[in-house]
Amino acid sequence: MGGNSTDTMSLKLKIWRQKNSKDKGGMVDYTLDGVSPDMSFLEMLDVLNTKLITEKGDSIAFDHDCREGICGMCSLMINGQAHGPQANTTTCQLHMRKFKNGDEIVIEPWRAKSFPVVKDLMVDRSAFDKIMAAGGYVNVNTGNAPDGNAILIGQGDAELAMDAAACIGCGACVASCKNASAMLFVSAKVSQLALLPQGQVEAESRALAMVDKMDELGFGNCTNEAECEAQCPKGIKLDNIARMNRGVVKGLFAARK
């Protein structure tokens, strides 16, 4: 708050409005004045919603929670890019200084068969929960928390596992993929476990089960475009998909169930 920028912006907004999952929906134009460059993108939408409510209109529904870039709730396709134009940034961490006075901003929900629109800019991402429920956990009893250095894990592996675990499950990979594929999300969840000793026991059967669930839920196939990697707010790497692909092959031949 209270930055040095005193100049406010006037924006032309084109926002997807849809009453409910059955409504056809459409783009609606809004003009918003007095936008501070120090506002976050979601604060800008808050200001618009306050204006709409004051004018007795229906406020725009959008997902948000922590507004600190770690919960994975915010989404939004901003000017055709998942989470907007800034790399490695969630919508809540995107600031209006990235835009100019008079800009037109197009705001849409994630588009995928597996992410149906609930209302306006909100989509149902429970498909991700179903994929996690299909195997995104460690089944074997690993006992109580072990002593700090009882299980030695190489620094490299620990870093790779942490990089994969940075995935917040926001769905930007699905939104930005031209095939609406969930490969980057699933591969991050497969990798964060497959790289560590406790997760290795079930690595192959897990990869297979999660991929099967992903297919069943109607996500598209990967065409190695890497647009997911480029638009992921957490910088999840395509290497994870390769690791999952290896796991699936091993799983087909070696999984015990």
């Binding site: 000017n79 055709g80 790399a87 849409e108 031209k178 647009e227 480029a230 638009q231």
Partner: peptide
Amino acid sequence: YTRKHSGRGS
């Protein structure tokens, strides 16, 4: 409605 490539992937 509109789609833009990041320039770093596709």
